[in-house]
Amino acid sequence: MNYTENLSTSVLWTIGVLYGILSLVTIGYFWLDHKKKSAQSKELITRTQSWWFLMVVVGLIVLSPALIGTIVLAYLAFMGSRELYSIGNLKFTDRAAILVAYLLIPIQFYLAYTFQYHWFLNFIPMVGLTLIPIVLILSGYSGNIGRSITFIPGVLMLTAYSFSHMVLIYGLDIEGYAIGAGGILLFLILITELNDIFQYNWGKAFGKHVILPRISPNKTWEGFLGGVFTTTLVAGIFHFLTPLSFIQSMIAGLLLSVFGFFGDALLSAIKRDLKVKDTDDLIPGHGGVMDRMDSLVFNAPVFFYLITLFTNQNL
């Protein structure tokens, strides 16, 4: 899909509106800070700075040519896996295996960028899951090797394998759809992010019955169901960004909402197990890369396969 030529006005408009809202919020907060200096307004300003940083990254993924988007996503996957390996309580003897895991990330994204679909699908599940255990065995230490054998490739599945599905979208060629990959990617990121916000706010307003008390005490049935309902409707409205019809778009919204919840809960469970609050403190007010991209862990592959299903792609 030649995508810079086709970059459509609807994507530009949506991005433009998002930047506009953020600009208004920023101006508002600075005005508030100017009027009444307080620690709270300082906090709000650092949060908006973080949002600007995130929006620039989203803009790069959505608006720039496929190569730059691929590099950005690959680097995000690398940062995400680096965070998880950093908090993952791994051993000295795991070092070589982790290095191998890092080296597999650019290859996985290269396979996605060149759309070698067969290799793309098998690379980390096959090569990763043979090579990493072999390296672990060669490092000559058996203590807790079961944990290392699963955790090290598992992190790759959650980061590189998952996020590289977004790169595949750059390579899709969908008949009768002129907006380009930017529209599909924007829909995915926007709906996932909005779903986070909806579930959080529904939970905050009406939350009573906790779903997973021992994993994430903030997640309630009220928040989850309210979020799913709102996201499904909003996803229908944004169907103009995608090749999907209104109803198909709502189904996508429903699935993104549910799997976004599971991605979020999965990362919460991992963090709780490792007794850390956030994976990193890179982005003030948000935590690390994986704290922000947790809902995308399942959403990226789910949405890719949904798109290919609805548009009858022959992969």
Partner: peptide, 14 residues
Amino acid sequence: MVNHNQFSEEEQFS
């Protein structure tokens, strides 16, 4: 970075 490592001292990342 708090040390919550369940492994023995030799095994840990230093």
